[in-house]
Design a protein around this nucleic acid. Structure first.
Length: 589
RNA sequence: GGCCCGGUAGUUCAGUUGGUUAGAACGCCAGCCUGUCACGCUGGAGGUCGUGAGUUCGAGCCUCAUCCGGGUCGCCA
């Protein structure tokens, strides 16, 4: 730094008459001839450097040679500006520069480093280190860092111990696809990267650590989404001597503290709760956005004998007819728009979409001609539909009507722009333990196989698996699943029973989970925990809708990283050492 | 893997029915400029129209393939 030592960050410069030293990047040079202004930027903000006829000639000519993104240190005296700028924090002062060092010149960047950019994200990701110079992203990552700090503060204060668990672990093929790491030492064998530290944290409970936390990197080799990266971070925790209530309460405390400390938002606790069943019936989703109404309503009983065959046959077949009412939507949801919605619901599994559009005095309803006298009125009155509303119906098996209307509800709400701002947390509880898989004609674990069933349904394990619910809970914020957890099975016998109910043979149980089953033979306190998605939490707290905005070096949809070019082809020698050969891509043959 | 959208100066975009030399703004370069902060003024450079085939007298525009990016469904115990 050629003898200069920074005294202030740019955004913090103050005190007229103070001698200060600042360092940063050139945001903008405004060269007026015999008067030059340079906006100098660091992560705290911008300060104006001023050079005029009182400036040393050598320094003045250095200043006139500066361009965007040059790295400078400047020493000077803080003075009041002749003309002020109210739009920035340091807009009333400037630095009368007495000494200037150009620490690094810079090529013209491929895009301007400004907050409000609409540059193609692909280019930004290729030059991510430049993109990250932008204030918005810096603030997002700073926010993420603060969240991590509050998490450590809170859980440490509550007696949690941070313990690292291995990144190279045994692969178990349940759940998401594993990322694999070949072993050099063990010919033909592989480690897996953890999808979560699940089994290890349970073992730590068995060891008696009682309360564990880790900011754990997790890996899942599945296709990406805006809110899904293949590697992500969980605030992962586990507690002993607890039941569901204790865990929810502990984590509500964290949420409350986090939002107060960082956003100064009061989150009322206890957080609202919905059972899985209720969430599905009212919102068609296990992660409902409850910031707005438009709840799903069941009219099956009204139409089971209807002349409209689409409705009656759905009910006959054991399904249902359900509807959502979009209030005052008739002008936005034109015939054409409803056609688009029909197209949409067909794409997600519905056979069609029946609707009533109530624009004129009388509701317009394509299927009214099939209905008996008074039937339409009964439906409208049940649904509390009024003039100006649009009612959308789906008739099918419950497995279709509920999720389809759930998705439609969200889509329509976005279209109508009726979703209010705010942070609407809720817990979803009592998840079904099993999910029937039609492909394999078997029951599979909806959560993971270590989840404890609710006390009163253990008896149905063999007789009626569909009836068994689990001590599992999700934390949902504004329609995004933020966290998932459960109470674990700590009884060796019960665990065996669960594995068998899932169709595992004793040999498979031994091969996959033998060490865990064995461990529980030595005694474990009742325990459970959860993992909070740090990335998603940061995303929502930053008010963005993409994890890429809160991840320093994110991957794109095909799981590659555009800046470094990962993944890449490796040296044949590296493969030889690992005894791996590459099968040519089918497409290249 | 399916479906949808996009790819034209460094960047963001426009580009007529397929028709002469592909435009604008910002950025960049040079000159001028003492209170700018979207500085101003004058001048200038800058294009394999993602890539490859095809149709055509002629393709940025039409067709096919392909690559890249985004969204979405599948997938994510």
């Amino acid at each position: 730094m050629q003898g200069l030592k920074r005294t202030h960050y740019c955004g913090d410069v103050e005190g007229i008459g103070n001698e200060v030293v600042v360092g940063g990047y050139v945001q903008k040079v405004r060269d007026l001839g015999n008067l030059i202004f340079i906006d100098l930027r660091d992560r705290t903000g911008i300060v104006q450097l001023a050079f005029d006829d009182s400036t040393d000639r050598e320094i003045f000519s250095k200043a006139s040679g500066c361009h965007a993104e040059y790295v400078l240190m400047a020493k000077g005296v803080v003075r009041e500006r002749e003309s002020k700028n109210d739009t920035i924090k340091t807009g009333h002062i400037e630095i009368d520069v007495k000494d200037l060092r150009i620490l690094a010149k810079a090529q013209t960047p491929p895009f301007e480093i400004v907050d409000d950019t609409n540059v193609n994200e692909e280019l930004r990701l290729k030059y991510r280190y430049l993109d990250l110079r932008r204030n918005v992203l810096q603030q997002n990552l700073i926010m993420r860092s603060k969240i991590a700090k509050v998490a450590r503060d809170y859980y440490y204060e509550n007696g949690f111990i941070e313990i690292e668990t291995p990144m190279m672990i045994k692969s178990t093929p349940e759940g998401a696809r594993d990322y694999l790491v070949p072993s050099r030492v063990h010919h033909g064998k592989f480690y897996a990267l953890p999808q979560s530290p699940q089994m290890y944290k349970q073992l730590l409970m068995i060891s008696g650590f009682d309360r564990y936390i880790q900011l754990a990197r997790c890996f899942r080799d599945e296709d990406l989404r805006a809110d899904r990266q293949p590697e992500f971070t969980q605030i992962d925790l586990e507690m002993s001597f607890v039941d569901v209530e204790d865990i929810l309460e502990m984590n509500e405390g964290f949420i409350k503290r986090l939002f107060k400390e960082i956003l100064n938002v009061d989150i009322p606790t206890p957080l609202p709760r919905l059972t899985y069943k209720e969430a599905m019936e009212r919102y068609g989703s296990d992660k409902p956005d409850t910031r707005f109404g438009m709840e799903i309503q069941d009219i099956s009983d009204l139409v089971q004998n209807s002349g409209f065959g689409v409705f009656s046959s759905a009910v006959d077949a054991g399904g249902s007819v359900r509807a959502i009412v979009a209030k005052n939507a008739a002008t936005v949801l034109t015939r054409k728009e409803i056609d688009k919605l029909t197209e949409y619901v067909r794409g997600i599994g519905a056979k069609g979409l029946a609707f009533i559009r109530w624009v004129e005095d009388e509701p317009s309803c394509g299927f009214a001609k099939f209905l008996a006298d008074g039937e339409l009125d009964a439906i409208l009155s049940r649904l509390n539909a009024e003039k100006g509303d649009v009612v959308l119906f789906v008739a099918d098996k419950n497995k279709v009507t509920l999720p389809v209307l759930g998705a439609l509800r969200l889509k329509v709400a976005k279209q109508l722009d009726i979703i209010p701002e705010g942070y609407n947390f809720l817990w979803i509880t009592e998840f079904p333990f099993f999910e029937y898989d039609e492909d394999s004609d078997s029951w599979i674990a909806m959560h993971h196989p270590f989840t404890m069933p609710m006390d009163d349904c253990i008896e149905y394990l063999d007789s009626d698996p569909g009836k068994v619910t689990a001590k599992a809970y999700d934390l949902v914020l504004n329609g995004t699943e933020l966290s998932s957890g459960s109470i674990r099975i700590t009884d060796y016998e019960l665990q065996q029973k669960m594995f068998r109910a899932l169709g595992l043979t004793d040999e498979e149980i031994e091969a996959k989970f033998g060490f865990l089953v064995e461990a529980y033979k030595y005694g474990a306190a009742p325990h459970g925990g959860m993992g909070i998605g740090l990335d998603r939490l940061a995303m929502l707290m930053c008010g963005t809708d993409s994890l890429r905005d809160v991840t320093a070096f994110p991957k794109v949809q095909n799981a590659s990283e555009l800046m470094s070019g990962a993944p890449n082809v490796v040296d044949g020698e590296q493969l030889n050492e690992l005894s791996i050969s590459i099968i040519p891509d089918k497409k290249e043959n």
